[in-house]
Design a protein around this nucleic acid. Structure first.
Lengths: 212, 212
DNA sequence: TTGACCCTAGGGGTTTTCCCTGATTTTTTA
DNA sequence: TAAAAAATCAGGGAAAACCCCTAGGGTCAA
């Protein structure tokens, strides 16, 4: 038997979810919450297996609620159910500890599947959410284009050595060139990628998945 | 009309895919390939909209093939169809430029949906693949543990400012402390996380998903 | 109350980074 | 072939980073 807590500030929608989930004989809705604080309190008290939560809620928004739930009740699995299609939401919620992400216009079967998957220790992401997550890895190919592409071969070598944490002296030794030359390349790289220092350069590399 | 190229070294399976996809009136299979090199050659010649490809193939494996296809024919969308459930495969293929990832035991409808999604410029990931991608964001909470956890609150603040690319002077201003104090904290952070400089610190942050 | 730890701040030093300018040789491209 | 771009080297100078040290004041717990 899967114990579920439903947190959503829209009463009608919440009741709809309850009756939808209750139809499945393996699922029992043990509590409802209309805001984030209530959700956390009831979760800590009843320790449900799965928590179905909406992002936008009064008191404590879904994101913060998920974060706290993950800290205080890590064994509970959080399924985010939302109408937000914004990319950032998906990633932030996953970062916050969500195990599933479903849009409200999903088929109702999907909701039940998702709850069961989470209860089973798996994750469940809607087609859309999956695309967003994947896009984080896909992007680089296109993003590379401008600045990184404009580096010369030598500069690209230097670039990679810098993001390895190498000093200019190391780089000079590595490439068998003078320190001054390495320094020049370094400067060019920072300039072309429009960053102020090595730390920012590594950030740039991370953002564009250039970090090995 | 969506032109599709199918690359799979298993003849029977390949033919099965062809007849499956051909059943849809909006899809036309323009070519088949039994290995990676053939896949690339035919793709460059026929410029299909979608390329359905298996990971394990002779001559040039799927991963390499996807990489090259992405470089030489970026407008073609690659759908990876495989029986490999290994985590690394998903991520590597996506990094290589795949727009979709489907397991061979998926429903046949899913294949058609996936092809159409890709032709439409979207991505398509099976439930499983999505989970793997999501897990990349979930992990950190556990990985954080050792060194980062040992930072004091103040050090953690400084840590985050360093990985923002801030200089010591910036940090001092930010926290309203003297440059010398900021410098001390900076030193402590580098020391505790066992890195030599800010660049390595950002690497550390990236590895542990601490980069915002 | 006495360590232990943290935050604070400074002294004094070396090394590295970053930003210039200017020049020679090689490679690429028009 | 001539022009442009890239790679090499170099020096000066300011700023930042990094390192080692001391030291007062605060909190907290044994």
């Amino acid at each position: 038997m899967i114990n579920v807590l439903i947190a959503d500030d829209h009463t009608i929608l919440r009741h709809g979810l309850v009756s939808l989930l209750s139809r499945d004989e393996n699922i029992r809705v043990v509590a409802e919450a209309a805001d984030g604080v209530e959700a956390i309190n009831k979760a800590l008290e009843l320790k449900p297996t799965v928590i179905v939560i909406d992002i936008s809620m009064p008191e404590l928004n879904g994101m913060e609620a998920v974060k706290r739930l993950n800290e205080q009740l890590p064994e509970a699995k959080v399924l985010v159910l939302t109408m937000h299609e914004e990319q950032e939401y998906v990633i932030h919620m996953v970062r916050a500890g969500a195990s599933g992400y479903l849009l409200k216009d999903s088929a109702s079967d999907e909701l039940i599947d998702a709850v069961k998957a989470l209860a089973d220790g798996k994750t469940y992401f809607s087609q859309y959410a999956a695309s967003v997550l994947a896009s984080q890895y896909n992007k680089p190919a296109e993003n590379w284009q401008d600045p990184y592409k404009n580096l010369t071969n030598r500069e690209r070598e230097v670039f990679h050595l810098i993001i390895e944490g190498k000093t200019t002296k190391d780089i000079a030794r590595s490439l068998d060139i003078s320190v001054k030359t390495a320094e020049n390349h370094r400067g060019k790289v920072l300039d072309k990628l429009n960053v102020a220092n090595a730390a920012e350069l590594v950030r740039y590399a991370a953002k564009n998945h250039l970090l090995m």
